[in-house]
Each structure stands twice: as structure tokens, then as C-alpha cells.
Amino acid sequence: MCLAVPAKIVRLEAGGQGAASYMGSEVRANFSLVPQARPGDWVIIHAGFAISVVDAKEARATLRLFKEMAAAERR
């Protein structure tokens, strides 16, 4: 029900506005819902609004898990 992508904040402007980068494209977004976010942070963007800040540690852990599973399967 809720298409959203992780994107990296490139700019924060007044009034909660700003822009984030996703695969080299720039998308305008509203960051009012993630007041703690700073440029360089990754956020989840849905319908033009950042709804959460990506936890880099958790993201790395998931990646590591999948790399290990893939390696185990290929052995």
C-alpha cells in the first residue's frame, strides 16, 4: 500500500523542504516528519515526504546476512 524508496538527503531548506538523491536522480521532498535528519542521512521517502531515517547499522547487518547466505548457497 505504500511505495517508498531509501534516498540520501542532499539539501535541507527552510520550512522542512529539501531534496534527496536516489540513484543519481534528485527528488524534492518534505522533511518535516523527520526533524532529526541531516544532509547525508538516508531516509525513506513516500509520496514526497520522508517518513523515517534509515538505520545504517541495521542496513549493513541485513546486507551482510544476505551476502553470507548467497555465499553459503554457492559453495
Partner: peptide
């Protein structure tokens, strides 16, 4: 889905 979801969710969004 810990990379995008905090157990307590987004308090600012809920307050709004």
C-alpha cells in the same frame, strides 16, 4: 525491516 522501521515508529509523524 529494522533499517527503515524503529520499534516505536515515528513520533513526530504520529503527533501531527
Amino acid at each position: 525491516y529494522g533499517r527503515a522501521v524503529a520499534r516505536e515508529g515515528n513520533a513526530a509523524a504520529r503527533a501531527l
